Amino acid sequence: MTFKLIINGKTLKGETTTEAVDAATAEKVFKQYANDNGLDGEWTYDDATKTFTITE
């Protein structure tokens, strides 16, 4: 399955995708991506669209 991450950061904005077997796996990938890029914010997830959002 394809999951999307929408980034609404103070300095970084955009989106990225990952292929994962489930939402929990995708969340780990996206949280590592956010950590690697210095993002810290509030996370939301929409199961209907398989989309995570981080807002700083």
Score class of each variant (00 low, 15 high):
residue 35 N to V: 15
residue 45 Y to T: 01
residue 13 K to E: 05
residue 22 D to F: 04
residue 50 K to C: 06
residue 20 A to L: 03
residue 20 A to T: 05
residue 12 L to N: 09
residue 28 K to A: 13
residue 32 Q to V: 07
residue 10 K to W: 09
residue 39 L to S: 02
residue 52 F to A: 01
residue 50 K to Y: 11
residue 16 T to P: 03
residue 21 V to Q: 13
residue 56 E to C: 07
residue 4 K to D: 02
residue 19 E to C: 11
residue 3 F to T: 00
residue 14 G to S: 14
residue 21 V to D: 10
residue 24 A to N: 08
residue 23 A to T: 07
residue 14 G to E: 08
residue 2 T to A: 07
residue 56 E to K: 04
residue 25 T to D: 14
residue 44 T to S: 12
residue 38 G to L: 08
residue 38 G to F: 11
residue 36 D to A: 15
residue 26 A to T: 00
residue 49 T to S: 13
residue 39 L to P: 02
residue 50 K to G: 05
residue 33 Y to N: 02
residue 44 T to R: 12
residue 30 F to Y: 02
residue 25 T to V: 07
residue 11 T to C: 09
residue 52 F to V: 01
residue 40 D to Q: 15
residue 27 E to D: 05
residue 11 T to M: 13
residue 42 E to Q: 11
residue 33 Y to R: 03
residue 46 D to C: 07
residue 9 G to V: 13
residue 28 K to I: 10
residue 15 E to V: 10
residue 19 E to Y: 15
residue 45 Y to I: 02
residue 20 A to D: 02
residue 30 F to V: 01
residue 28 K to H: 09
residue 48 A to G: 09
residue 14 G to A: 11
residue 51 T to A: 05
residue 35 N to A: 14
residue 29 V to C: 06
residue 42 E to D: 13
residue 10 K to F: 13
residue 21 V to L: 12
residue 37 N to H: 15
residue 51 T to M: 04
residue 54 I to C: 05
residue 4 K to S: 06
residue 52 F to D: 00
residue 18 T to S: 04
residue 16 T to R: 15
residue 2 T to V: 15
residue 9 G to P: 03
residue 24 A to V: 11
residue 6 I to L: 08
residue 27 E to Q: 11
residue 50 K to S: 06
residue 4 K to R: 14
residue 11 T to Q: 15
residue 9 G to L: 15
residue 15 E to L: 11
residue 54 I to R: 01
residue 14 G to N: 07
residue 27 E to C: 10
residue 39 L to R: 02
residue 10 K to Y: 08
residue 49 T to F: 05
residue 18 T to G: 03
residue 31 K to I: 07
residue 5 L to W: 03
residue 52 F to G: 00
residue 21 V to G: 11
residue 26 A to S: 02
residue 29 V to H: 14
residue 22 D to W: 03
residue 50 K to P: 01
residue 20 A to M: 03
residue 3 F to H: 03
residue 3 F to S: 00
residue 47 D to W: 09
residue 17 T to E: 09
residue 23 A to N: 05
residue 37 N to I: 14
residue 37 N to E: 07
residue 27 E to T: 04
residue 28 K to N: 09
residue 38 G to Q: 10
residue 29 V to T: 13
residue 25 T to A: 14
residue 21 V to M: 13
residue 6 I to R: 06
residue 18 T to P: 01
residue 4 K to I: 13
residue 18 T to E: 04
residue 42 E to N: 10
residue 42 E to L: 13
residue 12 L to M: 14
residue 24 A to P: 07
residue 18 T to R: 05
residue 26 A to P: 00
residue 9 G to Y: 12
residue 44 T to E: 08
residue 48 A to C: 08
residue 31 K to T: 05
residue 47 D to L: 07
residue 20 A to P: 01
residue 7 I to N: 02
residue 36 D to L: 12
residue 34 A to G: 03
residue 30 F to W: 02
residue 44 T to I: 08
residue 42 E to C: 08
residue 38 G to K: 12
residue 6 I to M: 06
residue 6 I to H: 05
residue 33 Y to K: 03
residue 9 G to N: 06
residue 15 E to C: 10
residue 24 A to K: 11
residue 50 K to W: 06
residue 40 D to M: 13
residue 50 K to R: 15
residue 34 A to M: 06
residue 52 F to I: 01
residue 6 I to K: 07
residue 31 K to R: 14
residue 10 K to L: 12
residue 54 I to A: 02
residue 33 Y to W: 15
residue 49 T to P: 02
residue 9 G to D: 04
residue 37 N to R: 15
residue 44 T to P: 00
residue 2 T to R: 12
residue 54 I to H: 02
residue 6 I to Y: 06
residue 56 E to H: 06
residue 12 L to R: 07
residue 12 L to P: 04
residue 47 D to S: 14
residue 25 T to W: 09
residue 16 T to C: 10
residue 43 W to F: 05
residue 13 K to R: 13
residue 23 A to P: 09
residue 20 A to F: 04
residue 7 I to H: 04
residue 3 F to N: 00
residue 30 F to G: 00
residue 30 F to T: 00
residue 32 Q to F: 05
residue 23 A to L: 06
residue 37 N to F: 09
residue 36 D to R: 09
residue 46 D to V: 06
residue 41 G to M: 03
residue 43 W to C: 03
residue 4 K to M: 09
residue 2 T to Q: 12
residue 30 F to C: 01
residue 34 A to Q: 03
residue 34 A to L: 05
residue 28 K to V: 10
residue 3 F to K: 00
residue 48 A to K: 10
residue 31 K to E: 04
residue 20 A to S: 08
residue 12 L to D: 07
residue 46 D to E: 07
residue 4 K to A: 05
residue 31 K to N: 04
residue 8 N to P: 03
residue 1 M to I: 14
residue 9 G to T: 15
residue 32 Q to R: 10
residue 40 D to C: 12
residue 41 G to S: 02
residue 8 N to H: 11
residue 16 T to D: 03
residue 6 I to E: 04
residue 23 A to V: 12
residue 28 K to G: 09
residue 12 L to C: 10
residue 18 T to H: 07
residue 48 A to V: 14
residue 46 D to R: 03
residue 22 D to R: 03
residue 13 K to A: 07
residue 50 K to D: 03
residue 25 T to M: 11
residue 56 E to W: 12
residue 35 N to F: 15
residue 2 T to K: 11
residue 11 T to F: 14
residue 30 F to D: 00
residue 55 T to P: 01
residue 11 T to E: 08
residue 26 A to K: 00
residue 13 K to S: 09
residue 21 V to H: 15
residue 41 G to W: 08
residue 49 T to W: 04
residue 38 G to E: 07
residue 9 G to F: 15
residue 27 E to Y: 15
residue 38 G to R: 08
residue 31 K to A: 06
residue 42 E to H: 14
residue 35 N to I: 15
residue 47 D to I: 09
residue 36 D to E: 13
residue 24 A to D: 10
residue 7 I to W: 15
residue 8 N to R: 11
residue 19 E to P: 05
residue 1 M to A: 10
residue 23 A to R: 14
residue 12 L to E: 09
residue 6 I to N: 05
residue 41 G to K: 01
residue 19 E to N: 10
residue 12 L to I: 14
residue 44 T to F: 11
residue 34 A to W: 03
residue 52 F to K: 00
residue 48 A to N: 13
residue 29 V to A: 07
residue 33 Y to T: 03
residue 15 E to F: 11
residue 9 G to S: 13
residue 27 E to S: 07
residue 6 I to V: 10
residue 33 Y to L: 06
residue 45 Y to N: 01
residue 33 Y to Q: 03
residue 30 F to P: 00
residue 28 K to Y: 11
residue 56 E to L: 12
residue 54 I to M: 05
residue 48 A to Q: 11
residue 52 F to W: 07
residue 14 G to C: 11
residue 27 E to W: 15
residue 40 D to E: 15
residue 15 E to R: 05
residue 16 T to Q: 13
residue 25 T to P: 02
residue 42 E to V: 14
residue 21 V to C: 07
residue 7 I to C: 05
residue 37 N to W: 15
residue 14 G to H: 11
residue 50 K to Q: 10
residue 14 G to R: 07
residue 13 K to Q: 11
residue 21 V to T: 12
residue 21 V to A: 12
residue 42 E to P: 04
residue 4 K to G: 04
residue 10 K to V: 13
residue 54 I to K: 01
residue 4 K to P: 01
residue 43 W to H: 01
residue 4 K to L: 08
residue 49 T to E: 06
residue 11 T to K: 14
residue 2 T to N: 09
residue 8 N to D: 09
residue 28 K to Q: 12
residue 51 T to L: 03
residue 8 N to C: 08
residue 17 T to C: 07
residue 56 E to N: 06
residue 53 T to P: 00
residue 23 A to M: 11
residue 20 A to G: 04
residue 41 G to R: 01
residue 17 T to P: 02
residue 53 T to F: 11
residue 26 A to G: 02
residue 19 E to Q: 13
residue 44 T to G: 09
residue 3 F to V: 01
residue 3 F to Y: 11
residue 44 T to M: 07
residue 1 M to K: 13
residue 17 T to D: 05
residue 24 A to F: 15
residue 44 T to V: 08
residue 36 D to G: 05
residue 5 L to K: 00
residue 37 N to C: 11
residue 49 T to G: 04
residue 5 L to Y: 01
residue 38 G to V: 04
residue 43 W to E: 00
residue 3 F to I: 02
residue 39 L to W: 12
residue 21 V to P: 14
residue 24 A to W: 11
residue 22 D to M: 03
residue 51 T to H: 03
residue 54 I to S: 01
residue 44 T to Y: 11
residue 53 T to R: 06
residue 32 Q to E: 08
residue 40 D to S: 14
residue 17 T to M: 12
residue 10 K to G: 09
residue 54 I to F: 07
residue 18 T to C: 09
residue 19 E to H: 09
residue 17 T to S: 11
residue 20 A to V: 05
residue 21 V to F: 12
residue 41 G to P: 02
residue 26 A to Q: 01
residue 17 T to H: 08
residue 26 A to C: 02
residue 2 T to E: 08
residue 1 M to S: 11
residue 43 W to Q: 01
residue 31 K to M: 10
residue 9 G to Q: 07
residue 13 K to P: 06
residue 37 N to A: 15
residue 51 T to Q: 04
residue 16 T to L: 14
residue 37 N to G: 04
residue 43 W to P: 01
residue 51 T to N: 03
residue 27 E to F: 15
residue 15 E to S: 12
